[in-house]
Write a protein that binds this DNA or RNA. Structure first.
Length: 467
RNA sequence: GGCGCGUUGGCCGAGCAGUUAGGCAGGAGUCUGCAAAACUUCGUAGAUGGGUGCAACUCCCAUACGUGCCUCCA
C-alpha cells in the first residue's frame, strides 16, 4: 500500500524491512482517566492501517504501549489514594483505566488479540540501560533533578534533530522557555529520567555511585518499548499529529543517538484531530466525549467507527451528535446487508458488481488509507443490492473482505431462529392465499420479536429492528 | 512571533482540470393488497480577488476567515 510519511511529507509505497513482516508501533494511552473519543479515533485509524496491511498479504506485528507512569498518573493516584503506598496507588489507578481502555478498544471494533500491548513499568530496566548508554556516549548529562538528553551533542554527532518538523526557530519558542521548570543546559533538552520528589513512586537507579532513584521521562518510555519489541529501525510509527513534536522527534533522537542509522522508523503515520464545534477535542478545553457518553445516548458505539472512517485520517473531522447519528444509519444499512447472507437469495447479475467493487475498495484503502472513498464504494454496492436483488453467496464471500478492512463485527452476526423462519414461511403461505389479515398479523408478531419484514420481488426479506 | 493545514450544496464529506461522488435531512412522485423497502426527481455546491490553460471546484499567487503545532496531549 501507499502511505503518507511525515518524514518525507510524501506518499510512498510501504516496503517491509524484513521479508513480509510489517512492524508497527502505536503510541497508546496514558491510563490516568478514560480515553476520550478523539484519542480513540487515532486508534481506529491505526487499526485500519493494520487491517489494510494484513489484507495486502503482510504479517503485521503491532505494538501499542500503555503509559502507566508519568506526571499525570502519579498526580492523580496521589490525589485519589493518598493513604496508600505511592507505588500501590499508582498501580491500582493505572490498572483500572487500562481495563476501561481495553473495553473501549473492543467496543470500537479493534481485535486486541492482534496487538501486543506493552506497559512502561515493565520496561524500566531497559530504559535505565538506554539512559546509561546515552550517558556513557556523552549524549546525556546528570543534573540536580535528573538526567537530560543533550540536543546539541546529538547534532554535533552529525545527526539531524527536526526530522519530522522544520525546527529552525525552535529555540525562540517563548512558551517553551517560560514553562521550563527544570534544571537543564538548554531549553530544548528534555528529561530522560526524573529524580524522585517527595513521596512519589520511584524505581532504584544508580550510575557511577550516584543515586538517581526516580522515574523515567515520557519520551524514553517509547524508545525503550519500541526497541525491545521491534528493534531499530522498524517499519511504521503511528500517533496523533500532536505527538510529532516534541514526542516523536525526541524518540528519534534517543533511539538513534547511539546507532549508525539515523532512522528510527521508515514511516511516521500521523492522524489529524477530531474537533468539536471547530475546536480540538481535549481534556483541557473540557469539550470531550467518551464512549460512555455515546452509550448513554443509546447510540451504537460502532457508529463512531463508521463516523471516523468517513473522513480521511489526514483531515480534521468535526464531531457532532447529528453526524454520529448519520453514521449510525449507515452502519444499520451495512448490517442489514450483511444479514442477507442468511436468506438464500440469488441474483446472478449482481455477482459481477461484487467482483468489481471489492478490488476498488481495497484499492482505495491502499491509497493512503482513503477510507471515505472505500466506504462510499461499499455503500453504493449495498444500494445496488437493494435495486437488483441480493445474492447470499456473493455477500458471504465479500463480507470476509469487508470485515477484514472495516472491522464492524459483521461476521459474528447471528441468523434468526428456526421458529422465526417457520413464521416467515407461514406468512408466505398466507400471502399465497391472499389472506392479508393473517399476513399482517404475522408481520406484526415478527416485528415484536425484533424482525422487520419487507416484501420484494425475491420474496420476503427480513432485517433486525435493533440491528 | 515561527512552522503548517483547511475553506465544497441545510448538515457531513470525497475524487477529479472537461462526464452524477456518496451519506444524512427535506419536497414531489412511481411501485405496493397494505406496510416497509426500493426507485425516479427537485433544491442545481465549491470563501473572495487575480493568474495560467481551449477548459478550473480541481493548478499558481494574494486576501479573508477558521484551525493545528511550537508547553502535557491521540
Amino acid at each position: 500500500m501507499d502511505l503518507h510519511n511525515t518524514l518525507t511529507n510524501q506518499i510512498s509505497r510501504i516496503i517491509p524491512l524484513k521479508d513480509n513482516i510489517i512492524s508497527i508501533y502505536s503510541c497508546g494511552p496514558t491510563v490516568y482517566d478514560s480515553a476520550h473519543i478523539g484519542n480513540l479515533s487515532s486508534y481506529i485509524y491505526a487499526d485500519t492501517l493494520h487491517r489494510t496491511l494484513e489484507a495486502s498479504g503482510l504479517n503485521v506485528t503491532h505494538i501499542m504501549n500503555i503509559t502507566d507512569v508519568d506526571d499525570k498518573t502519579i498526580k492523580k493516584s496521589r490525589e485519589l489514594n493518598h493513604k496508600q503506598e505511592p507505588m500501590e496507588a499508582l498501580s491500582s489507578l493505572t490498572k483500572e483505566y487500562a481495563g476501561t481502555f481495553f473495553e473501549d478498544m473492543k467496543d470500537i471494533g479493534i481485535d486486541i488479540n492482534s496487538y501486543d500491548f506493552v506497559k512502561a513499568t515493565d520496561h524500566i530496566e531497559h530504559m535505565q540501560i538506554i539512559i546509561n548508554n546515552l550517558l556513557t556516549a556523552g549524549f546525556a548529562y546528570i543534573t540536580e533533578d535528573g538526567v537530560y538528553f543533550s540536543i546539541q551533542k546529538y547534532i554535533d554527532s552529525g545527526k539531524k534533530y527536526g526530522q519530522l518538523l522544520n525546527l529552525t526557530n525552535i529555540n525562540n519558542g517563548k512558551a517553551r522557555i517560560d514553562n521550563d521548570e527544570y534544571d537543564k543546559d538548554s531549553a530544548i533538552d528534555f528529561a530522560l529520567w526524573k529524580k524522585r520528589k517527595g513521596d512519589e513512586p520511584f524505581w532504584k537507579f544508580e550510575i557511577k555511585g550516584e543515586k538517581l532513584d526516580g522515574r523515567p521521562g515520557w519520551h524514553i518510555e517509547c524508545s525503550a518499548m519500541s526497541a525491545s519489541a521491534l528493534g531499530i529501525p522498524f517499519d511504521i510509527h503511528t500517533g496523533g499529529i500532536d505527538l510529532i513534536f516534541p514526542h516523536h522527534e525526541n524518540e528519534i533522537a534517543q533511539s538513534t543517538a547511539n546507532s549508525k542509522n539515523q532512522i528510527m522508523a521508515t514511516t511516521f503515520f500521523h492522524n489529524e484531530h477530531l474537533l468539536v464545534g471547530g475546536k480540538k477535542m481535549s481534556k483541557s478545553l473540557d469539550n470531550f466525549f467518551t464512549l460512555l457518553d455515546i452509550k448513554n445516548k443509546n447510540i451504537d458505539v460502532l457508529s463512531f467507527r463508521v463516523f471516523v472512517l468517513q473522513s480521511h485520517y489526514r483531515s480534521q473531522s468535526n464531531f457532532s451528535w447529528e453526524n454520529l447519528l448519520s453514521a449510525q444509519i449507515i452502519l444499520q444499512d451495512i448490517r442489514n446487508w450483511a444479514d442477507l447472507r442468511f436468506q438464500n437469495l440469488e441474483s446472478k447479475e449482481l455477482k459481477k458488481d461484487y467482483e468489481q467493487a471489492l478490488p476498488k475498495i481495497f484499492k482505495s484503502v491502499s491509497n493512503d488509507l482513503n477510507t471515505p472513498e472505500a466506504l462510499s464504494i461499499l455503500i453504493s454496492l449495498i444500494k445496488k443490492t437493494g435495486e437488483i436483488g441480493a445474492d447470499s453467496q456473493a455477500i458471504s464471500d465479500s463480507l470476509v473482505v469487508i470485515e477484514k478492512l472495516f472491522g464492524l463485527n459483521l461476521l459474528n452476526r447471528q441468523d434468526i431462529t428456526q421458529f422465526q423462519k417457520e413464521t416467515i414461511k407461514q406468512r408466505a403461505l398466507a400471502r399465497n392465499n391472499q389472506d392479508w389479515e393473517l399476513s399482517d398479523t404475522i408481520r406484526e408478531e415478527l416485528y415484536n420479536s425484533g424482525i422487520k419484514i419487507r416484501d420484494t420481488e425475491q420474496g420476503q426479506i427480513w432485517s433486525r429492528t435493533n440491528t
